[in-house]
Design a protein around this nucleic acid. Structure first.
Length: 196
DNA sequence: GTACCGATGTTCT
DNA sequence: GAACATCGGTACC
């Protein structure tokens, strides 16, 4: 399967969020390999989006990766304990990004179980949330600003199958005023791997 | 099933 | 000092 190239990422966040659904995240480290289908995403669109870290072009130590060109990663710590993994969209200096909220494991399930180490027997509890999937895939701030087009430690592969896309409001951005009602969260209909 | 709560630390005011 | 793109446990239906 083909690694997605630079031009795939150089579009606006809303388009990229939908295009990333159904694609395959590949994570390689220490001779291990994990593959997951992307099942849920959210778009954060730069200067005008009050829900976005880079609202009003706010460029800080935390948010600067969003200003890189598309195809990089933006990873940050949230609530002091969990990481969130975003795919940077659009061209350089246009701070759009797509938060990966949920994925479905298709390879390396035993590694994921070991990384997560939870009581729940339900497979979907392993990766149905932005913080959960970062633990499952061993993603942390060391991979911040990482270039996903390299096809090495972390990248995204082409994939195609038929599914229906559901659009809904984004999660936990009550502070975003009129932007909190934007239907910028996308997930694969009838898929169990979606956050609550 | 839903509801609440504490954990935890970096960033920005 | 407050806010935060979250999660897992416990308590209760």
């Amino acid at each position: 399967m083909k690694n997605l190239n630079q031009s795939f990422y150089e579009t606006d966040g809303i388009t990229l969020a939908q295009n990333l659904l159904g694609k395959i995240i590949v994570r390689k480290y220490e001779d291990k390999i994990i593959k997951c289908i992307i099942t849920e995403t959210e778009a954060y669109c730069g200067p005008e989006d009050k829900g976005c870290h880079a609202f009003d072009n706010k460029k800080t130590k935390r948010t600067f990766p969003m200003f890189l060109n598309g195809g990089k990663s933006y990873i940050y710590l949230i609530y002091g304990m969990y990481y969130c993994f975003n795919v940077v969209a659009n061209k350089e200096d246009i701070p759009h990004a797509v938060l990966i909220r949920s994925v479905e494991p298709i390879e390396g399930l035993e590694i994921i179980k070991k990384n997560r180490n939870i009581k729940s027997k339900k497979i979907e509890d392993l990766t149905n949330g932005p913080g959960k999937l970062c633990i499952a895939l061993n993603i942390d701030k060391n991979l911040n600003t990482y270039d996903l087009t390299l096809g090495e430690e972390l990248y995204i592969e082409e994939n195609s199958f038929n599914f229906e896309v559901v659009k809904s409001k984004r999660i936990n951005i009550d502070y975003a005023e009129e932007y909190k009602d934007k239907l910028w969260r996308f997930y694969i209909k009838n898929n169990k791997f979606v956050s609550k």
